[in-house]
Design a protein around this nucleic acid. Sequence first.
DNA 1: GTGGTCTAGACCACG
DNA 2: GTGGTCTAGACCACT
Lengths: 126, 126, 126, 126
Amino acid sequence: MFVIDAMSRVPVYEQIVTQTQDLLLSGVLKPGDSMPSVRGLSVKLGVNPNTIQKAYAELERRGVTVSVPGKGSFLREDAADTARQRVLETGLPKLNILLKDFSKAGLDRADILNLVKRALDEEVDK
Amino acid sequence: MFVIDAMSRVPVYEQIVTQTQDLLLSGVLKPGDSMPSVRGLSVKLGVNPNTIQKAYAELERRGVTVSVPGKGSFLREDAADTARQRVLETGLPKLNILLKDFSKAGLDRADILNLVKRALDEEVDK
Amino acid sequence: MFVIDAMSRVPVYEQIVTQTQDLLLSGVLKPGDSMPSVRGLSVKLGVNPNTIQKAYAELERRGVTVSVPGKGSFLREDAADTARQRVLETGLPKLNILLKDFSKAGLDRADILNLVKRALDEEVDK
Amino acid sequence: MFVIDAMSRVPVYEQIVTQTQDLLLSGVLKPGDSMPSVRGLSVKLGVNPNTIQKAYAELERRGVTVSVPGKGSFLREDAADTARQRVLETGLPKLNILLKDFSKAGLDRADILNLVKRALDEEVDK
DNA sequence: GTGGTCTAGACCACG
DNA sequence: GTGGTCTAGACCACT
């Protein structure tokens, strides 16, 4: 369910966080589901338990899960909405910066829109 | 000319690199111009000379400047093109990831296009 | 494994870079291997950690290694090919300049070829 | 007669030294000729007199010229031989290193000879 | 423990 | 004066 790229520069705990949110948005994980146990997931992924704990802590901080001491971590009922909202919150500023960079590079509104449309079309192909 | 945000998580040397490229694209810096001296800029920005040196080395590596020991760092004649090309090369993959995130969050093609258009309009206002 | 000549005019960090590539080409280092830690190598060579860090950054820039913060630096799977290709890319221009110098010094084609053949033979003896 | 590339990384004084030797080997400069005056050449090349002085000092150190205080620098009678010999003395070690690098990169004797021959042929075309 | 960034200060060759 | 290299030591995030 989780796939860790040890060679990637993005921190392992962050990979787990974003993949959890992705699995939630794609419906593989559902509200109410319990997350894998820290120890179980740590051996399965070959990752330090501390790293899993850190990921779970971050997920709880983001309001995606609730951790019940002694029982485990569970996806909140509104987890999908939270994740969706978070994508927009973090994505929009990034989009703004990116678009500003493009326009600074001399692209006008039409150029940029074409760029985006082409990117969207390619995505469909995949 | 350069403004350093010490609180930012993006490294100081990288801020200098990107700001140099921005100043180039906006026409404030022109091909053939000489960059401020390593020591001069370091005292002006309140930053260690080593940090400036690192930024200048990166700029030369990117083909934006030439550093001539004993003389200074100079913007290459084709610096603007190089910077422009670099924006596209690094920006397009980022755009793809961003758009994919949006679509994973449930936005369809029309939603995303609206998002982008709104972002482009806001930019005009600024 | 690494031998630093402090008296040499070629920078220490560059010595480390080229020796890494040599060790790779001679099969002592293999793709997937991890490089010594920055601090470990720095004490072993009696060199400042910063200098090792600079060498490792350059190796990553050249596509020979991947540096994963918190884990270490690792030789890429295609590291040997990259190093090999790099030798040719940087060596051929040098060869051209050298041959031009020889011909300017009055040596003709046959003279130069003999020179090269003798150098190749000597190498075998070593 | 002399052409300085201010943007080059090779020191200006060294450019003058090597160009002097080249002019000597190509017969433009002849034994017994006097070198341009330090001040004259410095204004002609737009270069600091110190730099010219340094180049002339190096040429004398190499046995190419003799400087007569109050009169100027003159090319020695055996200057061409000296220059020729110097090319070989400095070039052969470089050639050895280069050939060793090529063989380390997996090229065998035949490969390298072909490389050299091709380089020699290209030189003819120029 | 790891790599990455940064400061403070030094020395070098070059102009 | 310039850029380039290096040391000594610090802090950070991540594993």
